[in-house]
Amino acid sequence: METYSVDIKKDEEGYLGRECPECEKYFKIKPGTGIPDFADCYCPYCKKFAPQDHFWTKQQIEYAQSVVLNKVSGDILKMMKKVETKPKRNQFISIGITVKGNPTPITYYSEKELEEKVECKNCTLQYAIYGTFGYCPDCAAHNSQQIAEANFDLIIKILDLAKDASPDVKVKLIENGLEDCISVFDGFARERCCKQYPKLSFQNIYSAKQKLDESGINIPEGLNNSEWSFVVKQFQKRHLLAHKMGVVDEDYIKKTNGDHKQLGKKVSITETDVTTLIIHLKVIVSNISKHVERS
């Protein structure tokens, strides 16, 4: 039996489309990055493990089949062309053979655009997925901590823009920075803990700590009491921004041991507050990643 080799082309950025044989979700990898000569693959969504040749997309298979049919049908047409004959003149009966037709057309396709491009810190594979979080197709490392840290770093870059902004824009950028870094942390922690603690919210970090304490997980490990109290206070500031237009109320004063003179005034948030919070949250993110396995 004759065999055919078909080249499956990468997209303009060097990514190759993949499709999980289990959940049928689409992702891309960049060949040449990651583990050298890695023969098997993980699905970044469901963690299905199978040989690389199980991850061809339906479009790639259809394209490969059409290339082979194009080749075979083209060869058959060429062979039949060789037996073409024209009717002979001046004969009572003369039969001619004419071969018409074209090779089976090739079904072309293009790779899809995906939302998140990641370079795995563990094995350096470059891959692209829908959504934000996923497993590395090479080494199966989950990218939740890496994504969180990258977003924290982006917030710090945005805060740098506040230095040259007008006073009102500067205040808004700093407030947004505080809300954004807590949203990043909440998104990371929910994703990391969704199997063990599916209903746990991390926007109330004090309650989340108490819940995880029950499992022997000390999320502020490495932070002293003062640093932990600072983290809790910043989360309370975010609560004021989200629900009270940033105005200090009795609940905030009670939970932060604040000064009653601040009651009814706008809460104060500085760039240092946000950058220091990010430093402490990176410690907490590392602790959660270490103690909560995302499987």
Rank of each mutant, 00 (worst) to 15 (best):
Y108G: 07
Q234R: 13
M79V: 15
I288Y: 04
L159F: 01
I219P: 02
A64F: 12
F202M: 09
F188G: 14
D153P: 10
L223G: 12
T276G: 05
I217E: 03
F133P: 06
S295A: 09
K163Q: 14
R190V: 13
T124E: 08
H54Y: 11
F92Y: 11
N218Q: 05
M80D: 01
I35K: 01
L69R: 04
H260R: 05
R192T: 10
E179K: 09
K209Y: 08
T270R: 00
I95H: 14
K172P: 02
E2N: 06
S73R: 07
D186E: 09
V118S: 15
C136T: 00
D251W: 11
K47S: 15
F92S: 10
V6M: 01
I35P: 00
A140Y: 03
K112R: 04
Q146T: 12
K195Q: 11
D53K: 05
R238E: 14
K265Y: 07
A128E: 13
N122D: 11
F230H: 01
G187P: 11
L223K: 09
D213L: 04
K157Q: 15
A50P: 12
T132P: 14
D186T: 10
L178K: 02
Y26N: 00
I76W: 13
F92R: 11
K48N: 14
Y206R: 10
K195W: 06
I174K: 00
K163T: 14
F133E: 02
T132L: 14
W228P: 04
